[in-house]
Design a protein around this nucleic acid. Sequence first.
RNA 1: GGAGAAAUGGCAGAGUGGUCGAAUGCGACAGUCUUGAAAACUGCUGUACCGCAAGGUACCGGGGGUUCGAAUCCCUCUUUCUCCGCCA
Length: 423
Amino acid sequence: MLQTSFIRENKELVIERLKKRNFDGKEIIYQILKLDDDRKANQQQLDENLAAANQFAKQIGELHKSGKQEEANLLKEQTVELKEISNTLKEEQNSIAENLQQLLYRVPNIPNEIVPAGKCADDNEIVFEEGSIPKLIENALPHWELAKKYNLIDFELGVKVTGAGFPFYIGQGARLQRALINFFLDQARDAGYTEILPPLMVNEASGYGTGQLPDKEGQMYHAPIDDFYLIPTAEVPLTNMFRDVIVKKEDFPIKVTGYTPCFRREAGSYGKEVRGLNRLHQFDKVEIVQIQHPAESYATLDTMVEHVKGLLQKLELPYRVLKLCGGDLGFTSALTYDMEVFSAAQVKWLEVSSVSNFETFQANRLKCRYKDENGKMQLVHTLNGSALALPRILAALLENNQAKEGIKIPKALVAYTGFDLIK
RNA sequence: GGAGAAAUGGCAGAGUGGUCGAAUGCGACAGUCUUGAAAACUGCUGUACCGCAAGGUACCGGGGGUUCGAAUCCCUCUUUCUCCGCCA
């Protein structure tokens, strides 16, 4: 959520930058400013009324003390009208505030100036590429066939027990999954992140805090009896740890990491894009989150990108880094890099990580602040990234490393799996 | 799930209808003293909104109510604690 004060001071810039997302913000920005004016004017009137009422109350109190009941009663009558006006103004104020809030929720974050123009994923800019695309053996199989052949994952069983998109990992498949989680967590810890094991369900306030609500309500599983949401990413609990928190500036940067399953309804996706591990309703992911001083956040974003690149190198996967264009940028993000690995049998790039700087967009909703040099409260910057999402990594590992004798495990992982070949 | 108690500033802890944004202590910050530090002493110390400012308004877990006036009374929700039940 953008700050009203920022919108006011940078009206033209905001409208201009939002165009990069193909978001026509002109009308809504003017509505917001108009409502904010109304809010101020109304608040002023309300305050004056309340001040007058407070004066009366004080006088009545003094009259009571000195035993002048009649005079006190006279004054009481005078407060009736004042009270009615105050009530009306208060109602108006609430309604204005609510409307303003709803409008603010609808405005996405403004893209950083280096975000390339573009309409969709095709317009993303490839900024880095590394690793060579492997030459596969004859009769190479896609990962869902490999998973079946080596009995690593049972998709049909998942359908029976839960539904499509909830696979069972079995034997070496399950162990490989666990190995990846531990590997990623250890790597994050080595990079200075504190490991967190957070709740997998969050309340409504947390959904608002990171921006899943009110817009992407349909993407989350909801448990209505207790009004909890299953997390679509560890970002939600890990970032909401800092909701309503005043961070000490010497604590910057705050770095946390966590492994969680992620639950996504993925309403409206189907077809071959969701084949195998490409898109699941439940999947595992290790997330990294940082809370940072605004002046440092973009340097931090770079270090997070480097961290993820390091993971992909160690897994010996060919990958590329994309700078997302305005049209593909998430609602809450100011700048996002996506990492994609090449899945050789499917012959396509799969997104395995997304690293973003949200600047103050989340912090404003979270009320996560620090005191600056002048003792003034300022919003922090929040950042996060996947490091990494497991299913597509697994897909690429299986496909790229298939050989006649089995599937080879990258060296870095062998210490974690306890085996170097899936047979 | 049942019965009871509680929720106050960074922390501890007073305050049961009127001048309480809130005593006191600790902590933090600034200063005096000191070669330096400690101790002692002095001062200061919440957030948000409106206003050029003076100042005003709101906030004592959240929401609502009673009252001229609520930290204080009532309703409701949440959380914590104690006891009982159930349970990994």
